[in-house]
């Protein structure tokens, strides 16, 4: 069972975006996200351009739109929660609230799409290595790689507990009883995942792990990477400054 957001099958598609150096992609998407965040909420054309840039990259990467859309759905609960907080707790005029909501929604969705395209076109461990090459502190890259690997474990343990619970449930349970069972299961789930993660860590130490995930891949910037950087950033600069 794989965690919903990451799919290692997606990274097997050998499209042009998959083949770029991960450092190039990380830097490019970082600047794109920065451009999105700092764009004024009134510059609707710029948001449209950013959106079409992402659509273009998605098409060229051969990522199915429905895969992207499924992942996009993940942020809606958070956005709705933030929107509700804004409406109930901030006493702003309606038009101001609308402006803030628009700002929140459009930027969150575009930034999330940037991250989704980056992650779906880069193998996770290459992403982590790329970050290390860009001098991101090792504590952060180690945390990222462990969080990724342990999310699989968490999902597996949750599935085991769910099956155990279902095997001893006979239907017709009241909702409150179900909630009560789940509240007992959740801490147990965390505890089991923690125990398992300790054993996996022991196994990694036994095979020489010293805090840095190594891969056989080595990164070398090619003409293709320089061309992408040049084209991408020139276009982004044009959108930010000129449009």
């Amino acid at each position: 069972m794989t965690p919903f957001f990451f799919s290692e099958e997606d990274n097997s598609r050998a499209s042009f975006l998959h083949r770029f150096d991960p450092r190039v992609k990380i830097i490019s998407f970082f600047f794109l996200i920065a451009a999105i965040v700092f764009t004024s909420s009134h510059d609707h054309y710029k948001f449209l351009v950013y959106f079409f840039m992402l659509v273009f990259m998605t098409v060229l990467s051969r990522i199915p739109f429905k895969d992207l859309a499924r992942r996009l759905v993940l942020i809606f609960p958070l956005l709705i929660f933030l929107a509700a907080s804004l409406i109930f707790f901030e006493r702003n005029p309606f038009s101001e609230n609308l402006d803030i909501l628009w700002n929140l929604f459009v930027k969150s969705i575009l930034c999330f799409l940037c991250l989704a395209v980056l992650i779906l076109t880069t193998e996770f461990y290459h992403l982590v290595q790329g970050l290390e090459h860009l001098k991101v502190p090792r504590i952060i890259t180690s945390l990222l790689s462990f969080a990724y690997r342990y999310s699989f474990l968490f999902a597996q343990e949750a599935e085991r507990l769910r099956r155990a619970k279902e095997s001893r449930s006979f239907g017709n349970r009241k909702k409150l009883e179900e909630v009560s069972t789940v509240t007992h299961i959740v801490p147990h789930l965390f505890f089991k995942t923690f125990e398992r993660s300790e054993r996996i860590y022991a196994s990694m130490l036994s095979r020489g792990y010293e805090g840095k995930i190594q891969t056989l891949s080595f990164f070398r910037l090619g003409k293709r990477d320089f061309f992408f950087i040049f084209l991408f950033h020139i276009f982004l600069a044009f959108v930010v400054i000129v449009l």
């Binding site: 193998e123 461990y125 196994s203 990694m204 095979r207 020489g208 891969t215 056989l216």
Partner: peptide, 20 residues
Amino acid sequence: NDQLFMPTVFDDVAFGPLNL
């Protein structure tokens, strides 16, 4: 399952030698 934590069999077997 405590020993196999990489995406592929090759990656798992190569994990140790890479750390060397």
